[in-house]
């Protein structure tokens, strides 16, 4: 049976009463504390009521208020319902547990989020920059990012 987002929230909240999940109606999405994202993700994938087998998208967002967000868009091919999870971490200490053991594609998405926005995914099996060169400084999609004047002797601005 496909479930609506708030039904999934009630269901997950019953399974993880101590995790401190919260439901954001405006989006809608479930806000998960960083420490418990891995357990929640594993449950969401394997639970027979949820079967969220696909990670459609994992996005890093700089919220602009000293916090960074990681957004997980999940989808169930069998039950045909969707779920959005959100993890919000402070920009000063952006550690999020990796979910690359849950959905294999998360590895690349997390690397991209690290590369462009700069959160650190603990436990990612191949954690390094993916798009920008290894010696690049900074994370371009941060709202306070300054474009460097030179890179390896090449002028960057027009």
């Amino acid at each position: 049976m496909p479930k609506a987002m708030n039904e999934i929230f009630d269901y997950l909240n019953g399974l993880f009463p101590e995790a401190g999940l919260a439901f954001d109606e405006s989006v809608p999405c479930i806000i998960v504390p960083a420490a418990s994202i891995k357990e929640v993700a594993l449950q969401a994938r394997d639970d027979q009521e949820l079967l969220l087998d696909t990670l459609m998208c994992l996005s890093g967002v700089d919220n602009g208020d000293e916090t960074l967000g990681v957004v997980y868009h999940l989808d169930s091919m069998t039950l045909r319902h969707k779920l959005t999870l959100k993890v919000i971490v402070p920009a000063s200490d952006p550690h999020v547990p990796s979910v690359d053991r849950v959905w294999r594609i998360a590895e690349w998405h997390e690397r991209e989020a690290f590369d462009l926005v700069g959160m650190i995914f603990d436990g990612n099996s191949d954690f390094r920059r993916i798009l920008l060169p290894e010696d690049w400084e900074g994370h371009p999609l941060r709202k306070d990012y300054q474009v460097p004047e030179f890179y390896n002797g090449m002028k960057v601005p027009y």
């Binding site: 920008l132 371009p140 990012y145």
Partner: peptide, 20 residues
């Protein structure tokens, strides 16, 4: 030639191959 549509915000785009 010059960076094209990426001339302004392209932090990772070389603005013209004649620079190298």
């Amino acid at each position: 030639n010059c960076g094209g549509p990426y001339w302004e915000h392209g932090y990772h785009v070389l603005k013209g191959v004649d620079r190298v």
